[in-house]
Amino acid sequence: MRVLLPLLISQAQGMEMYREHRIGVVVPAYNEEALIGDTLSGIPDYVDRIYVVNDGSKDRTPQIVGEFQKKDGRIVLINHEKNMGVGKSIIDGYKAALKDGMDIVAVMAGDNQMDPAYLPDLLDPIVEGRADYTKGNRLLGPDYVRNMPKFRYIGNMILTFLTKIASGYWHIMDPQNGYTAISKKALETIPLDKVYTWYGYPNDLLVKLNVYGFRVLDVPIPAKYGREKSKIKYTKYILKVSWLLLRDFFWRLKEKYLLYNFHPLVFFYIFGILFLLVGTGGVLFAFYQKFVLHRAVLFYYLTLSLLVFAIGLIMFLFAMLFDMEEERRNYQKR
């Protein structure tokens, strides 16, 4: 019923589009022969175009998509000769959707992990002007995360916190969730060719959306895990994305609070980080002197290091507070 309702409304109005908006869906696919058919079969009829991006698959993924094309004229197959990353696949799908004049573009992975019944929940806030980018959130409570592997849940929480700091979207959760929808205006504004092309692309995209002032909204969507097998090596993934977020954090400060519009919070962040590093280094050096070299540590040296660390922590927390306030004000302006 959830999927059929938008279609019934559009038919009653004599239109084939979703609430007077043309909808495109990007389906990144890499070696998904087992599930790509189920994914394509489940995409609702109110979707105008389906952009399947075959990212250098070694199996029968492109052949299966080709068979579906014969039955469904909405499907557009984009082939990468070699594997270029899920981010690159989505970017190429976005570009194709822009050329075709889609008003909103959603992303549904080729492993059938994204329930099409929740697609209207992602589309409606954009249609109604309440958001420019919507994303699924599997972390709102135990009912939503019970199907998520524990290691994946812990890693997700770590990256959620780091992404909040890097992106400035303090209200968002589950930034790794790839079930998203984005407006045409946002796609035309952000530099798509500069978005990270591998698994850290949703985090990187959030940073860019924040710099350009777009509204992001979380949508509660339960985790869905079935026959699919994750291709992510999580230890390497977390380390790689953490480094990406660190670079994105300083890029956002430069672009948003120095070049586009000056705000003193950038200095609170920078000096807070410096004081934290110096204070931490001083405490570690004092412990090294005491417990490794067995030398007497001057009390004032350790006290000074702790004081510097405390000042740095306070400055960093004040910077976060200013950042949150700036985000709140930007949402109120809209």
Rank of each mutant, 00 (worst) to 15 (best):
Q289T: 11
I172Q: 03
L246Q: 00
D121W: 10
Y225S: 02
L259T: 08
G282D: 09
M315C: 09
P220K: 12
L284T: 13
L302P: 00
T163V: 04
A310G: 12
I238E: 10
I36H: 11
G213H: 07
V26R: 13
R215L: 13
P191R: 03
A186K: 06
L317V: 15
D103P: 01
S57N: 02
D323V: 03
S230E: 13
F267W: 15
Y30F: 15
H80G: 04
L259D: 07
I104D: 01
Y225T: 09
S242K: 00
Y201R: 00
G14V: 09
Y144A: 08
V26W: 11
L206E: 13
Y169A: 05
Y257N: 09
K290W: 15
M17N: 14
N112K: 05
V52Q: 07
K240P: 00
L140H: 04
R295N: 14
I238W: 10
P6M: 04
A181Y: 11
G42Q: 05
R146E: 14
I78W: 02
I270H: 05
A34W: 11
S230W: 05
F161V: 07
P120V: 06
N177K: 06
T180A: 05
Y199P: 00
Q176W: 06
G282W: 11
I91K: 03
Y51L: 14
E128C: 01
T61I: 03
A319W: 07
S89M: 06
P62R: 03
K256F: 02
L123H: 04
L119C: 05
E188D: 15
F267I: 10
G37R: 09
F309E: 03
W170T: 04
Y225Q: 04
A131L: 08
N112Y: 12
H263Q: 11
E255Q: 12
I36F: 12
L317Y: 12
I64E: 09
G110N: 07
G101D: 03
G24H: 04
L304S: 09
W251M: 05
G93Y: 05
S57D: 02
M114T: 01
G37F: 09
R334A: 14
D124Y: 12
Y212N: 13
E67N: 10
V25Y: 10
W251C: 00
K256Q: 15
Y300K: 09
Y269A: 00
E255V: 01
N137F: 06
D111K: 06
V105E: 03
Y237C: 00
G85S: 07
V278D: 02
K254E: 14
H294Y: 11
L209P: 08
Y212C: 03
A296E: 14
Y94V: 02
I43M: 10
V52C: 08
Y51I: 04
I36A: 08
V105G: 08
L7D: 12
R49W: 02
R295C: 01
